[in-house]
Amino acid sequence: MGEEDLYRDIILDHFKNPRNKGAVADPDIKVTGANPFCGDEIEITLKIQNNRAETLGINAQGCAISQASTSMMSEALQGKQLNEIKDAIAFFRDQMLSQQTKDWPPQMEDLESLEGVKQYPVRVKCALLAWNTLAEGIKEFQAQGNQKVAARHVEGEQ
């Protein structure tokens, strides 16, 4: 994928019109993450029902890549089972961090546009922030026996 594909319309659309903006009331999972290097900051809140992410809220600030990735993630994972979400997170991380990429499943097709980020290795962590943050929130939630959690702050890393 060529460099010219990085700031594609779809990424800019998610950056300018972030989906699922705001915080859900009385969340079951609340988790925050940041990349101190870039100043990207996000807060993810989820309402869980029957092991399913019923509603998902995002508050984010930072670069276009981190914000677009966060917005796309929220759209792709809204309403999914927690196990499906965990699989999607693992899949996305793998797509961003490995040289080879697999075909994107239909529900994640917008996210394909983020493959261009791989041209700029230092920016990959911008794309991964939301996913790593959500992974931590779910992990904590399940570790606490599906009790409400305000998970620890996640610092950006790959």
Partner: peptide, 19 residues
Amino acid sequence: HPHDSGTLLARENIAVRVG
């Protein structure tokens, strides 16, 4: 965001520091 500016300037072969 300065990191977006930096990446887009890099595309024009301009090396600046951002952050």
